[in-house]
Nucleic acid binder design. Structure first.
Lengths: 151, 151
DNA sequence: GTGGGGCTTCCCACGGTGGGAAGGTCAAGG
DNA sequence: CCTTGACCTTCCCACCGTGGGAAGCCCCAC
């Protein structure tokens, strides 16, 4: 039984990539345009599903779509050197560590502020005063420009 | 010398919030509409600059604009209870910790993969195979839905 | 042949941020 | 007083990755 091609909804179900995003990836050239039924429905064979799973997994690991473009190229290139792949991965690891450090800086500053805040009914919480404070850079400042997503 | 009001460019310079963003914050009601010169230029007095610094500082600490809306309301409310402020801060700390955990999961998985990759000229790097692998969830999977920003 | 679920394309939104065009304002210098 | 050039105004567009929804077509079962 050579697994028959499936439509986009089924592909979404089995790969965990939403139909919307599958179309988006096609539109932006991350995946090749899917085959179509005479009626215009997109069809996905096993290797397409494989690629979609690859993408989802990479997104899970925090790779940007651009990163994935690189990884996919390496994946498809049979003669690829593992060194290149490793480099991409390690660079991403470094990037992740930078982000973690940034978040930890924020956490530290904020926890410290919260500790000094009574947490009672009086309006004397120093958090606000610190936030309003005149521009003395603190632990979090080196991370300017970083914005976390999906609060 | 009662510090005279400044125009938006100067305000941007001294607060570290870009002119674009200052206008955006005004538009979205995060800050009150600025006073204007007869010619229509926005003017910012000391307390406006204070508020802008408050916002920038909060952004640095990873607060969303919505969070800041809350914090600003608490700040302006003289009778605010410090407990509320503390609660907002602590919730944000918890959120930051969740994000850190997510990123650490990715880092762990990816480092492990990179370790097992020769990093030589041969096309046998297991990273790609793992990425392509058939959908076994790994350490990073619990964090689905999280996307880091500004890679 | 009809109903309803799936598919198609298209546009809009989000959060924050930047870029840039077309035009008005302001202050300094001649 | 007038020109120059820096600054300001509003307005629209873009990014990324994702979801929502409308209008309309397709496919299958009954």
């Amino acid at each position: 039984m050579t697994t028959a091609p499936v439509t986009i909804g089924e592909a979404a179900r089995v790969t965990g990539v939403s139909a919307k995003m599958i179309r988006y990836y096609e539109e932006t050239g991350l995946v090749a345009p899917a085959a179509r039924t005479p009626g215009g429905y997109r069809l996905y064979g096993p290797s397409d599903l494989h690629a979609l799973r690859f993408i989802r997994r990479s997104r899970d690991l925090g790779f940007s779509v651009e990163d994935i473009r690189t990884l996919l190229a390496l994946w498809r290139d049979r003669g690829r050197a593992s060194a290149e792949v490793k480099a991409v991965a390690l660079e991403h690891v470094a990037d992740l560590r930078r982000r973690i450090a940034a978040l930890e800086g924020m956490t530290r500053t904020l926890s410290r502020l919260a500790e000094t805040c009574g947490g009672n009914a009086h309006p004397d919480c120093p958090i606000l005063d610190d936030l309003a404070g005149d521009d003395q850079p603190t632990a979090a400042s080196p991370n300017r420009g970083f914005r976390p997503a999906r609060h």
